[in-house]
């Protein structure tokens, strides 16, 4: 089984779309009246956050598939999606901090519910890897990880609801009204940014999947050839026996 077929196309598309999006954001979109140039980080921060959250939910959906069918490939998909989303999450929090510093003069803004909810979700998903790592039996590991992924996937929207309710939000006009009265010159690079980020996610996702699969295939071939079994250390990543 190979996942690499569309990898090249997706990578090129991701690079192109992101370049166009950022190009437009820098040169064509107007400088925002209130916040000035620093607001440009919006075109990285928000698409990244949206893609990361979708990645978490996608991981939850793959986990449901895994629990229903018991097929290891769904666990692998869930693992890769969550793993990549956590990496993106670091980016979201960093860009968010930079933006908050520029806009409000603080590195973190508690009155900003989207950022706060994202932090909570991120903290929850940070436990995914340690959870996997602390279960030795691979089959049990993947089953427990899927239970976690489904629970956490449902947690994402509920958490947003609770946090949003808790504080009257002060978020910058641009973000909350996205799609609403967002000026046209903002809208195009913003949407392209989301698309590009999604393509980037997809390229990384395919890359990691094909990497994991070819390693499993290699291991299997080696076993067939030599009989000498390569010692497999304890791992948090799903072990796929490809067929």
């Amino acid at each position: 089984m190979t996942y690499g077929n569309r990898l090249r196309a997706t990578s090129i598309a991701a690079a192109l779309v992101l370049m166009v999006a950022f190009g437009l954001a820098f040169f064509s979109a107007k400088i925002e009246a209130d916040q000035g140039f620093s607001q440009k980080i919006f075109y990285v921060h928000v698409p990244m956050a949206i893609v990361a959250l979708c990645g978490f939910v996608f991981g939850g959906i793959m986990a449901i598939q895994h629990l229903r069918t018991g097929l290891a490939k769904y666990d692998l998909k869930s693992y890769v999606a969550i793993h990549l989303s956590v990496v993106l999450g670091v980016g979201v929090l960093l860009t968010g901090a930079i933006w908050a510093k520029a806009a409000w003069g603080t590195w973190f803004e508690w009155r900003e519910p989207t950022l706060v909810s994202f932090l909570i979700v991120f903290l929850l998903y940070c436990t995914y890897q340690p959870l996997r790592f602390s279960i030795e039996d691979p089959e049990k590991q993947s089953r427990y990880a899927s239970v976690f992924a489904v629970t956490a996937g449902a947690f994402v929207p509920l958490n947003f609801l609770a946090v949003r309710l808790a504080d009257p939000y002060i978020h910058p006009r641009v973000l909350n009204q996205a799609g609403g009265d967002l000026p046209d010159s903002f809208r195009l690079p913003f949407y392209l940014g989301i698309l590009g980020m999604a393509l980037l996610f997809s390229a990384l996702y395919q890359y990691e999947l094909s990497h994991k699969n070819s390693r499993a295939q290699l291991r299997q071939l080696r076993r067939k050839l030599g009989g000498e079994e390569e010692a497999v250390g304890r791992s948090a990543a799903p072990q796929v026996s490809s067929s």
């Binding site: 909570i120 436990t127 947690f155 609770a162 309710l165």
Partner: peptide
Amino acid sequence: PLLVPVVIT
């Protein structure tokens, strides 16, 4: 983290 919404509400 799972219980944060309970704390908030």
